[in-house]
Design a binder for these strands. Structure first.
Lengths: 248, 248
DNA sequence: TACGCTCGGTGAACGGCGTTCACAAGAGGC
DNA sequence: GCCTCTTGTGAACGCCGTTCACCGAGCGTA
């Protein structure tokens, strides 16, 4: 076929490069001037192009935004992973705390990106490997695998069994993809539930803060966040429970 | 001074009526066709008007949307309050459970409204009495006052003191406004922390579900929510602690 | 009664948005 | 040298929020 990349042998070079460039410039615009500045004309101008040219790479603005979301998400996951790796694997509790605190810090420093990724239903049709799932899997999965996080769920969640099984399968396949195969039984549903619950609490606190829904408190919510973190750390402090009550 | 309402004696009649009508129709549009259908022209057409007429009532679209948010919020609070009042005041644990479950049900049935109110920073400048604060105060405050919720915080949050003090003052003044004066010492910081924490967890779970960020689980997240609720109920089940460790 | 003021509403217009479309270069393959 | 496919363009469409000049109706007052 034509210039480069495209069909058969060479798996896409210059084309995917400009596509990446588009996403990068779009993200820069998002960071610098907020979501409303994320217009096709502005993005195109950033690259010396005109708006219709972008349609050669993305079928719609929503798809482009969705791709940017994926980039942001990957970046966040990478960010958290390096934060975790900076803490010795022998201290999984400290690792979890680093991840959780890092999540808040990142969110407060990247409000526009956070709002775009975590504050709206995705319209671009990225589908399964979506945002929270990605971050959760990459970070939590790595944590579970490397640290073998000792965790006792405060409540044995018998009813939530299928959800946890599903999440375990996702984590296992994700870890396998990343070249870190883990024995199935090493990831206990209790631990999965505990971490998922921690992430939900964390997300709630951070989202409320970023969306300024805690402004009515009229005080710095950081101490509140610290208290939550301390509580989580306390939960993660327990020794692993031997029994596998109800979930295999 | 023209037709009706306006300045001195009669405190606004027909004018505020049409303003209310605008908000109501706007909300209907939001519910039926989503946020992107919330355009000035569409809202005006709904009332047999043209777009510029709306500027006689709201200085901008953002202000109108903000007003709609306030309406939604008030409606949610009222909704939850009736749910609570349906449960006997002698069982505050069941009341809390009803409120929490009702919040999720409402959010899933009013996704567009939820996303608008809880998924974006408010741009209309409503300011202090904003969304989460309103709902939290109206429902939690009423619960604390009527049920005298017995609660033991799992961690005594010494560091979060000022936040809780601030929230307590807000609750007290809110209750006083509502004609339910409560003795200050009846609302213990422990209980406030516990309830705030429950709301944060709840918000996290519901927001993630509404924003479809749990879709990667590929299973119904309701059991997970139930597990969280059971855990919360367990926390609320403890008897009140006598000590007032570190917080007034 | 007639003036004048203000309020609530209009139509036209502006710039900007996402999106579509016909069309023009340019790069290989034959 | 063509033929084709890719990548980009400019013009246009319809819709958006917003502004502006204008206009009739209703009222207080002279």
């Amino acid at each position: 076929m034509t210039a480069n990349t495209s069909s058969s042998d060479r798996p896409g070079r210059e084309r995917s490069d400009t596509e990446r460039l588009i996403r990068a410039r779009a993200r820069g615009l998002l960071v610098e001037h907020g979501e409303k500045a994320l217009t096709l004309r502005a993005i195109a101008a950033e690259l010396g192009l005109t708006a219709p040219a972008l349609y050669r790479y993305f079928p719609s603005r929503a798809a482009l935004v969705s791709a940017v979301c994926a980039d942001v998400c990957a970046d966040l996951a990478h960010n958290l992973r390096t934060l975790i790796d900076r803490v010795p694997a022998s201290d999984p509790k400290a690792r979890a705390a680093a991840a959780f605190r890092g999540f808040r810090t990142w969110a407060l420093r990247h409000r526009a990106e956070f709002a775009l990724v975590f504050g709206t239903p995705d319209e671009g049709g990225a589908g399964l490997r979506d945002q929270f799932g990605l971050v959760l899997m990459e970070v939590t999965g790595g944590m579970l695998a490397s640290g073998r996080l000792a965790a006792a769920a405060p409540v044995a969640p018998a009813a939530a069994g299928p959800v946890l099984e599903s999440l375990r399968d996702l984590l296992l396949s994700g870890l396998a993809e990343a070249g870190v195969p883990v024995e199935r039984h090493l990831i206990r549903p209790d631990a999965i539930y505990l971490l998922l619950r921690c992430w939900i609490l964390l997300y709630g606190a951070v989202a409320l803060e970023v969306f300024e829904k805690l402004a009515f408190l009229a005080t710095d919510p950081e101490p509140l966040f610290d208290a939550l973190l301390a509580e989580i750390a306390d939960l993660l402090d327990h020794d692993p429970v031997a029994g596998t009550d109800g979930l295999g």
